[in-house]
Design a protein around this nucleic acid. Structure first.
Lengths: 375, 375
DNA sequence: CTTGCTTTGAGGTGCGCACATCAATTAGCC
DNA sequence: GGCTAATTGATGTGCGCACCTCAAAGCAAG
């Protein structure tokens, strides 16, 4: 049955060219004849059951005897049956709908995220996939939990949640999973729900990378390093700080990290605090901004010191950090590609919706290091 | 017609939750009813022509009057018609077949590439996409050109070519394009064929990034930098060297680059040459390996100096460079993710085969910087 | 007007699968 | 055996589109 059908691309050993292989395939020329793959009908035949039973097994419908299931599954292995995803998707005629739940904040990285979400919204129009997003106040764990609880399987197939860590949210996500709505923990450092997928970076490693770059940039004479955060309440910030300190202390002992300065996204306040700290520490040789929003602290610092002479490491690629990198106000950026993150979350939700495993390798978000030279 | 059909996901302004939107959609509940998108039939109706004509326009068949084409295209815009790709692919029932043409060489990066190609071969089994690869001697431009010329549209839909730059190969690729076989210039630094897509990095920028890292790592006292290549014949190598020198000379003038050492993949020879150079230059503070194969030169260097004390920058992530990064024999790696490169090439060939534009943003291969901390 | 050509319409078939219905068979149990 | 419940098979329909055939209509030149 199948032997005459799928000969062609079995050969991947790089020994034979396609042309050679083709000649062996009994003179059949037209590609659609040569590569035809086993269909559900072939499967039924091979398993010695009816198409209806094959359908029951494939789609996990009730009332299937263990024996029948075994027969079919064995046959699947044997003939190498793979469902034609196009046919599946056509027959189901289902449109996947995914929701991104993002914090409401004005920071530039979030803007980039939104931009990518919107871009993909259009790009996936043709792809049976519809994307929507919703923003909720950064501290409103209750609101997030409430929104999550209100989602209906009929309306949403999956949610990517970027939210503050909180037991309420965790529970809400767990309940979503029980209702078979897929959940992706998106770029947020909450204590992870192991049943849900996570898209994002290891923040300890990100902080450590920042530390290494800081050490490489700051020179070999003793100096102090300012660490600036929007808030140190979040797990993300804490882990980055831990990673940063670890590397500085162990590999660059001539550098001293100052206590974290928290800006709380308040521009005036940042100015004041930074001016005070810089006045009190004339030997600052590095600045590390560990929150996603680098603009406010860097502009504040620029008013007090010459950024060109001290090492500056920040997080996230934004129009601002990109420009600052170019004109040497910033020396290095630790980034996680927002476009990749969004696409990854969508791919994962799609795969889960189809009960497939996502390709782990592709979905791993890397900690990127950006210099002026590799922008 | 359509107004009642596709209301749901128009709202992306993050103001409304899905539930709210749903309530407005006239009480229809089942998702497949709510989101039904306009079909070709709707298109025909909207355009005031027959389904046959719509088909003719969509698939660019002959014998269509300009007027009819206009009618259809206008209607497409008006009602937002997008072909259901699943239905298209099912009806065409076409399997895409792509060939990777890679150099025959034992280096570790190529091994990684092959691994990813083989991985995707399996992963795409279900996806109407079959991948094969073929290897040809690194210098055999004639062989490459000959193989390319022998390809038949019936057998191959696209080729990703990683081959030495040569007019023969360029011409062969141009002829392939004329025969409507898609071509991707894959990780190779030939003077580009502008009509064909390119997957890979900017090697000047890669060399510049290496230079910056070298400067950051090598310290502030004067020193020499060894530059090691497999060969300086290829454009890749030349561009990397140029980028490297540019940064070193302009930003780190206390460092001096030595002339390139060519290993020609010959282990014994590398040992000798490097020993001689290291003996003649006691003040080497950095080593830059600009070819894809870092193992041979690094092992050779390890026999002559203490790699822990000098700055080492190499290219490409392989099991070897990864391990060497961990145990501090190497300080930084400039990498282009082979998995991403392979997937990107495949996505581009698929998009081109369907006469779609690939998503530029997604297909850009980044110059990654790897430190011990962000592996 | 006829001849020959282009353009349009109408209709059918099939891609591979999901899903539904109904009848037929089998198994479990008293 | 007789009963119910679980399990199978047979069969049909439709998803949205590509591709094909044939007939009808339009159009131009002679």
């Amino acid at each position: 049955m199948r032997t005459s059908k799928q000969v062609i691309f079995e050969v991947r050993t790089s020994i034979l060219a396609f042309a050679d292989v083709l000649k062996e395939s009994s003179g059949r020329r037209k590609s659609w004849e040569v590569v035809m793959r086993p269909t559900a009908k072939d499967l039924a035949e091979a398993a010695g059951v009816s198409l209806a039973t094959v359908d029951r097994v494939l789609n996990e419908r009730p009332n299937v005897s263990p024996k029948a299931a075994r027969l079919v599954n064995d046959a699947i292995e044997r003939i190498g049956f793979v469902r034609n995803p196009a046919a599946v998707s056509l027959a189901r005629n289902k449109v996947y709908r995914f929701l991104f739940l993002l914090p409401a904040s004005g920071d530039l990285y979030l803007k980039e995220l939104l931009r990518h979400v919107e871009e993909l919204t259009d790009a996936l129009k043709g792809d049976l996939t519809e994307i929507a997003y919703r923003q909720i106040g950064i501290d409103d764990a209750h609101g997030v939990a409430k929104l999550l609880s209100s989602l209906d399987k009929e309306e949403v197939d999956g949610v990517a949640v970027m939210a503050p860590e909180s037991p309420q949210v965790r529970d809400a996500m767990a309940r979503l999973l029980q209702r078979n709505i897929k959940v992706v923990q998106f770029l947020s450092g909450q204590e992870k729900l192991p049943e849900a997928d996570f898209v994002g970076i290891d923040n300890f490693a990100a902080g450590a990378s920042a530390g290494k770059l800081m050490g490489m940039l700051a020179g070999s004479h003793p100096g102090k390093v300012m660490v600036i955060a929007e808030t140190m309440q979040s797990l993300d910030s804490i882990q980055r700080r831990l990673g940063f300190d670890h590397v500085i202390n162990s590999a660059f002992p001539h550098l001293t990290c100052l206590p974290s300065i928290e800006t709380h996204a308040d521009e005036a306040r940042s100015q004041q605090v930074m001016a005070r700290v810089l006045a009190g520490n004339r030997d600052v040789s590095g600045i590390y901004v560990l929150s996603a929003e680098a603009r406010v602290p860097i502009l504040a610092a620029a008013g007090n010191v010459d950024l060109g002479t001290i090492a500056v490491v920040v997080h996230e690629r934004t129009p601002f950090t990109e420009q600052a990198l170019r004109d040497d106000r910033i020396d290095a950026v630790i980034a996680q590609d927002p476009g990749h993150a969004v696409r990854s979350a969508i791919r994962i939700m799609r795969a889960r919706s189809d009960a497939r495993e996502p390709l782990a390798a592709q979905e791993k978000i890397r900690i990127e290091i950006l210099l002026k030279e590799n922008l």
